[in-house]
Protein backbone atom coordinates (compact mmCIF):
# COMPACT_ATOMS: atom_id res chain seq x y z
CA UNK A 1 0.00 0.00 0.00
CA UNK A 2 2.64 2.35 1.17
CA UNK A 3 4.84 1.40 -1.74
CA UNK A 4 2.04 1.93 -4.20
CA UNK A 5 1.35 5.38 -2.93
CA UNK A 6 4.97 6.35 -3.19
CA UNK A 7 5.09 4.96 -6.68
CA UNK A 8 2.01 6.87 -7.81
CA UNK A 9 3.25 10.05 -6.18
CA UNK A 10 6.63 9.84 -7.82
CA UNK A 11 5.16 9.07 -11.22
CA UNK A 12 2.80 12.03 -10.87
CA UNK A 13 5.70 14.20 -9.85
CA UNK A 14 7.68 13.02 -12.82
CA UNK A 15 4.84 13.82 -15.21
CA UNK A 16 4.36 17.26 -13.68
CA UNK A 17 8.04 18.12 -13.77
CA UNK A 18 8.52 16.97 -17.35
CA UNK A 19 5.45 18.71 -18.64
CA UNK A 20 6.26 21.99 -16.92
CA UNK A 21 9.74 21.62 -18.33
CA UNK A 22 8.14 21.61 -21.76
CA UNK A 23 6.25 24.84 -21.23
CA UNK A 24 9.34 26.62 -20.04
CA UNK A 25 11.28 25.74 -23.15
CA UNK A 26 8.79 27.43 -25.46
CA UNK A 27 9.81 31.04 -25.44
CA UNK A 28 8.57 33.73 -27.73
CA UNK A 29 11.16 35.22 -30.14
CA UNK A 30 11.79 38.90 -29.51
CA UNK A 31 10.57 40.19 -32.86
CA UNK A 32 7.30 38.32 -32.35
CA UNK A 33 7.01 39.81 -28.86
CA UNK A 34 6.94 43.30 -30.27
CA UNK A 35 4.42 42.61 -32.97
CA UNK A 36 1.34 44.78 -32.74
CA UNK A 37 -2.21 44.45 -33.97
CA UNK A 38 -2.79 45.91 -37.42
CA UNK A 39 -5.96 47.70 -36.24
CA UNK A 40 -7.27 49.56 -33.21
CA UNK A 41 -9.29 47.57 -30.65
CA UNK A 42 -12.87 48.80 -30.67
CA UNK A 43 -16.13 47.61 -29.08
CA UNK A 44 -16.83 45.85 -32.40
CA UNK A 45 -13.58 43.89 -32.42
CA UNK A 46 -14.20 43.00 -28.76
CA UNK A 47 -17.66 41.71 -29.61
CA UNK A 48 -16.54 39.44 -32.43
CA UNK A 49 -13.58 38.46 -30.27
CA UNK A 50 -15.99 37.32 -27.56
CA UNK A 51 -17.77 35.03 -30.00
CA UNK A 52 -14.49 33.57 -31.18
CA UNK A 53 -13.36 33.10 -27.58
CA UNK A 54 -16.56 31.32 -26.58
CA UNK A 55 -16.32 29.00 -29.54
CA UNK A 56 -12.60 28.19 -29.38
CA UNK A 57 -11.07 29.02 -26.02
CA UNK A 58 -13.72 28.82 -23.34
CA UNK A 59 -13.61 25.04 -23.08
CA UNK A 60 -10.10 25.33 -21.61
CA UNK A 61 -9.77 28.88 -20.34
CA UNK A 62 -13.26 29.18 -18.88
CA UNK A 63 -15.03 32.52 -18.36
CA UNK A 64 -12.55 35.37 -17.95
CA UNK A 65 -12.55 36.56 -14.33
CA UNK A 66 -14.16 33.41 -12.91
CA UNK A 67 -11.04 31.25 -12.81
CA UNK A 68 -13.10 28.26 -13.96
CA UNK A 69 -10.52 27.00 -16.45
CA UNK A 70 -10.07 23.32 -17.23
CA UNK A 71 -7.89 21.33 -14.84
CA UNK A 72 -4.93 20.81 -17.12
CA UNK A 73 -1.26 20.79 -16.35
CA UNK A 74 0.07 23.42 -16.61
CA UNK A 75 -3.17 25.27 -15.95
CA UNK A 76 -4.53 27.28 -18.88
CA UNK A 77 -4.93 30.32 -16.56
CA UNK A 78 -7.80 32.72 -16.35
CA UNK A 79 -7.46 35.26 -19.18
CA UNK A 80 -8.42 38.04 -16.74
CA UNK A 81 -5.60 37.15 -14.36
CA UNK A 82 -2.52 39.39 -14.13
CA UNK A 83 -0.16 36.49 -15.01
CA UNK A 84 -2.05 35.98 -18.23
CA UNK A 85 -2.41 39.66 -18.99
CA UNK A 86 1.30 40.32 -18.53
CA UNK A 87 1.91 38.79 -21.97
CA UNK A 88 2.41 41.40 -24.65
CA UNK A 89 -0.02 41.47 -27.58
CA UNK A 90 2.74 40.02 -29.74
CA UNK A 91 3.32 37.18 -27.28
CA UNK A 92 -0.35 36.29 -27.19
CA UNK A 93 -0.49 36.36 -30.95
CA UNK A 94 2.54 34.09 -31.12
CA UNK A 95 1.06 31.61 -28.62
CA UNK A 96 -2.22 31.59 -30.53
CA UNK A 97 -0.43 31.00 -33.81
CA UNK A 98 1.99 28.35 -32.58
CA UNK A 99 0.21 26.70 -29.68
CA UNK A 100 1.88 25.94 -26.38
CA UNK A 101 2.02 22.73 -24.38
CA UNK A 102 -1.44 21.22 -24.38
CA UNK A 103 -2.89 24.20 -26.18
CA UNK A 104 -3.29 23.65 -29.90
CA UNK A 105 -2.30 26.26 -32.48
CA UNK A 106 -5.00 28.19 -34.26
CA UNK A 107 -3.28 29.06 -37.55
CA UNK A 108 -5.68 26.96 -39.53
CA UNK A 109 -8.79 27.67 -37.48
CA UNK A 110 -8.55 31.44 -37.10
CA UNK A 111 -7.17 33.92 -39.58
CA UNK A 112 -4.88 36.72 -38.45
CA UNK A 113 -7.65 39.28 -37.99
CA UNK A 114 -9.68 36.83 -35.90
CA UNK A 115 -6.68 36.10 -33.71
CA UNK A 116 -6.26 39.81 -33.05
CA UNK A 117 -9.98 40.12 -32.33
CA UNK A 118 -9.78 37.48 -29.57
CA UNK A 119 -6.84 39.33 -28.11
CA UNK A 120 -8.85 42.54 -28.11
CA UNK A 121 -11.59 40.70 -26.21
CA UNK A 122 -9.09 39.33 -23.66
CA UNK A 123 -7.66 42.83 -23.19
CA UNK A 124 -11.12 44.17 -22.38
CA UNK A 125 -10.75 42.50 -18.96
CA UNK A 126 -7.64 44.50 -18.21
CA UNK A 127 -8.56 48.01 -17.01
CA UNK A 128 -4.96 49.19 -17.05
CA UNK A 129 -4.32 48.02 -20.62
CA UNK A 130 -3.43 50.62 -23.22
CA UNK A 131 -3.03 49.43 -26.79
CA UNK A 132 0.52 50.13 -28.02
CA UNK A 133 0.79 52.29 -31.12
CA UNK A 134 0.31 50.28 -34.34
CA UNK A 135 3.67 49.48 -35.92
CA UNK A 136 3.64 49.22 -39.64
CA UNK A 137 4.67 45.65 -40.32
CA UNK A 138 6.25 46.41 -43.62
CA UNK A 139 6.68 49.23 -45.99
CA UNK A 140 4.83 49.02 -49.20
CA UNK A 141 6.77 49.04 -52.42
CA UNK A 142 5.59 52.18 -54.04
CA UNK A 143 7.76 52.69 -57.05
CA UNK A 144 7.66 51.00 -60.40
CA UNK A 145 11.45 50.79 -60.41
CA UNK A 146 11.82 48.57 -57.33
CA UNK A 147 13.40 45.16 -57.84
CA UNK A 148 13.68 41.98 -55.80
CA UNK A 149 16.32 39.32 -56.25
CA UNK A 150 16.09 35.97 -54.54
CA UNK A 151 19.40 34.18 -54.00
CA UNK A 152 21.10 31.55 -51.87
CA UNK A 153 23.86 32.46 -49.43
CA UNK A 154 26.26 29.51 -49.53
CA UNK A 155 28.21 30.43 -46.39
CA UNK A 156 25.10 31.15 -44.29
CA UNK A 157 23.20 28.33 -45.99
CA UNK A 158 20.18 30.57 -46.17
CA UNK A 159 17.92 31.91 -48.84
CA UNK A 160 17.79 35.69 -48.93
CA UNK A 161 16.02 38.36 -50.89
CA UNK A 162 17.33 41.80 -51.72
CA UNK A 163 14.98 44.65 -52.54
CA UNK A 164 16.40 47.77 -54.09
CA UNK A 165 15.02 50.76 -55.87
CA UNK A 166 16.75 52.84 -58.45
CA UNK A 167 17.12 56.44 -57.35
CA UNK A 168 18.89 58.80 -59.74
CA UNK A 169 20.60 55.94 -61.49
CA UNK A 170 21.80 54.31 -58.24
CA UNK A 171 20.27 51.25 -56.61
CA UNK A 172 19.15 52.10 -53.10
CA UNK A 173 18.08 49.38 -50.59
CA UNK A 174 14.46 49.37 -49.41
CA UNK A 175 14.18 48.44 -45.72
CA UNK A 176 11.22 47.11 -43.68
CA UNK A 177 9.47 45.28 -46.46
CA UNK A 178 7.86 41.98 -45.53
CA UNK A 179 8.45 39.14 -47.97
CA UNK A 180 6.69 35.80 -48.09
CA UNK A 181 8.55 32.79 -49.37
CA UNK A 182 6.65 29.96 -51.05
CA UNK A 183 7.57 26.57 -52.42
CA UNK A 184 5.86 25.58 -55.60
CA UNK A 185 3.73 22.44 -55.35
CA UNK A 186 1.77 20.48 -57.92
CA UNK A 187 -1.30 22.42 -56.89
CA UNK A 188 -0.66 25.95 -55.59
CA UNK A 189 2.21 27.10 -53.43
CA UNK A 190 3.17 26.36 -49.85
CA UNK A 191 4.10 29.25 -47.58
CA UNK A 192 7.35 28.27 -45.87
CA UNK A 193 8.81 31.45 -44.43
CA UNK A 194 8.29 35.13 -43.91
CA UNK A 195 10.90 37.85 -43.28
CA UNK A 196 11.36 41.60 -43.51
CA UNK A 197 14.21 43.43 -45.21
CA UNK A 198 16.77 45.11 -42.96
CA UNK A 199 18.70 48.36 -43.50
CA UNK A 200 20.63 46.83 -46.39
CA UNK A 201 17.38 45.86 -48.03
CA UNK A 202 18.12 42.18 -47.38
CA UNK A 203 15.81 39.61 -45.76
CA UNK A 204 17.05 36.17 -44.67
CA UNK A 205 14.62 33.27 -44.58
CA UNK A 206 14.59 30.34 -42.21
CA UNK A 207 13.45 27.56 -44.49
CA UNK A 208 12.49 24.19 -43.06
CA UNK A 209 14.94 21.43 -43.96
CA UNK A 210 12.37 18.69 -44.54
CA UNK A 211 10.52 19.89 -47.62
CA UNK A 212 10.34 17.19 -50.29
CA UNK A 213 12.19 18.34 -53.38
CA UNK A 214 12.44 16.79 -56.81
CA UNK A 215 14.54 13.76 -57.71
CA UNK A 216 17.71 15.87 -57.18
CA UNK A 217 16.44 17.70 -54.12
CA UNK A 218 15.69 20.96 -55.91
CA UNK A 219 12.95 23.24 -54.65
CA UNK A 220 11.21 25.87 -56.70
CA UNK A 221 11.08 28.94 -54.43
CA UNK A 222 8.96 32.00 -55.03
CA UNK A 223 9.33 35.22 -53.02
CA UNK A 224 6.53 37.75 -52.97
CA UNK A 225 6.28 41.11 -51.29
CA UNK A 226 3.21 41.57 -49.19
CA UNK A 227 0.31 44.00 -49.30
CA UNK A 228 1.72 46.45 -51.76
CA UNK A 229 0.66 48.47 -54.71
CA UNK A 230 3.11 46.70 -56.94
CA UNK A 231 3.77 43.04 -56.27
CA UNK A 232 7.39 42.01 -56.57
CA UNK A 233 8.06 38.40 -57.44
CA UNK A 234 11.35 36.58 -57.66
CA UNK A 235 12.01 32.87 -58.12
CA UNK A 236 14.91 30.59 -57.33
CA UNK A 237 15.70 26.93 -57.93
CA UNK A 238 17.92 25.62 -55.18
CA UNK A 239 18.93 22.24 -53.79
CA UNK A 240 17.28 22.79 -50.43
CA UNK A 241 14.76 19.97 -50.33
CA UNK A 242 14.85 16.33 -49.47
CA UNK A 243 15.65 14.17 -52.49
CA UNK A 244 12.38 12.55 -53.49
CA UNK A 245 12.14 9.85 -56.09
CA UNK A 246 8.70 10.40 -57.54
CA UNK A 247 6.64 7.22 -57.54
CA UNK A 248 4.82 6.82 -60.79
CA UNK A 249 1.70 4.80 -60.10
CA UNK A 250 1.86 3.48 -63.64
CA UNK A 251 5.25 1.86 -62.98
CA UNK A 252 3.67 -0.90 -60.98
CA UNK A 253 1.50 -3.79 -62.04
CA UNK A 254 -2.03 -2.89 -61.08
CA UNK A 255 -5.72 -3.14 -61.86
CA UNK A 256 -5.77 0.35 -63.28
CA UNK A 257 -2.73 -0.03 -65.48
CA UNK A 258 -2.48 -0.95 -69.15
CA UNK A 259 -2.77 -4.53 -70.29
CA UNK A 260 1.00 -5.04 -70.29
CA UNK A 261 1.16 -4.01 -66.65
CA UNK A 262 -1.58 -6.29 -65.38
CA UNK A 263 -0.92 -8.14 -62.13
CA UNK A 264 0.97 -11.36 -62.83
CA UNK A 265 -1.41 -13.53 -60.84
CA UNK A 266 -4.30 -12.19 -62.89
CA UNK A 267 -2.64 -12.95 -66.21
CA UNK A 268 -1.81 -16.43 -64.96
CA UNK A 269 -5.34 -17.07 -63.72
CA UNK A 270 -6.88 -15.84 -66.93
CA UNK A 271 -4.57 -17.88 -69.12
CA UNK A 272 -4.98 -20.87 -66.85
CA UNK A 273 -8.73 -20.68 -67.28
CA UNK A 274 -8.71 -20.12 -71.02
CA UNK A 275 -5.99 -22.66 -71.78
CA UNK A 276 -7.52 -25.19 -69.39
CA UNK A 277 -10.88 -24.98 -71.09
CA UNK A 278 -9.21 -25.04 -74.50
CA UNK A 279 -7.29 -28.22 -73.68
CA UNK A 280 -10.44 -29.89 -72.39
CA UNK A 281 -12.35 -29.02 -75.53
CA UNK A 282 -9.52 -30.30 -77.73
CA UNK A 283 -9.47 -33.49 -75.66
CA UNK A 284 -13.18 -33.97 -76.26
CA UNK A 285 -12.77 -33.39 -79.98
CA UNK A 286 -10.00 -36.00 -80.06
CA UNK A 287 -12.32 -38.44 -78.31
CA UNK A 288 -14.94 -37.83 -80.96
CA UNK A 289 -12.35 -38.52 -83.64
CA UNK A 290 -11.57 -41.76 -81.88
CA UNK A 291 -15.21 -42.79 -82.15
CA UNK A 292 -15.16 -41.99 -85.82
CA UNK A 293 -11.93 -43.94 -86.31
CA UNK A 294 -13.32 -47.01 -84.57
CA UNK A 295 -16.25 -46.99 -86.95
CA UNK A 296 -14.28 -46.12 -90.07
CA UNK A 297 -11.92 -49.01 -89.50
CA UNK A 298 -14.85 -51.34 -88.85
CA UNK A 299 -16.37 -50.81 -92.27
Amino acid sequence: MQLNRILIASITLLIISTSSLFSQTTSVPSEAKNKTAPFLFTPETIKTGEQIFNANCKSCHGDPGKANYAKLNPIPKDPASPEYQKNSDGEMFYILSNGRGLMPNFVNTLNEAQRWQVISYIRSFNKSYKQPPIKSTGEVVKTETAKMILAFDKSEKKVFATITDSVAGLRKPLPDITIKLFVKRTFGSLLVAEASTGKEGIAYFNTPADIPGDSLGFLSLIAKTQGNSKELISTLNEKLGVVTKPKNLLDQRAWWNVNKMAPVWLIISYLFGVVGIGITVVYILLQLRKIKKINDSAT
Binding site: K290, K292, I294, N295, D296, A298
Partner: peptide, 12 residues
Protein backbone atom coordinates in the same frame (compact mmCIF):
# COMPACT_ATOMS: atom_id res chain seq x y z
CA UNK B 1 -19.65 -40.28 -86.77
CA UNK B 2 -20.74 -43.73 -87.82
CA UNK B 3 -21.88 -44.58 -84.28
CA UNK B 4 -22.68 -48.24 -83.78
CA UNK B 5 -23.04 -48.36 -80.03
CA UNK B 6 -20.04 -50.62 -79.50
CA UNK B 7 -18.75 -50.95 -75.98
CA UNK B 8 -15.60 -48.92 -76.75
CA UNK B 9 -17.64 -46.11 -78.25
CA UNK B 10 -20.07 -45.99 -75.38
CA UNK B 11 -17.17 -45.83 -72.97
CA UNK B 12 -15.58 -42.89 -74.79
Amino acid sequence: LGWKGRKAEVKI
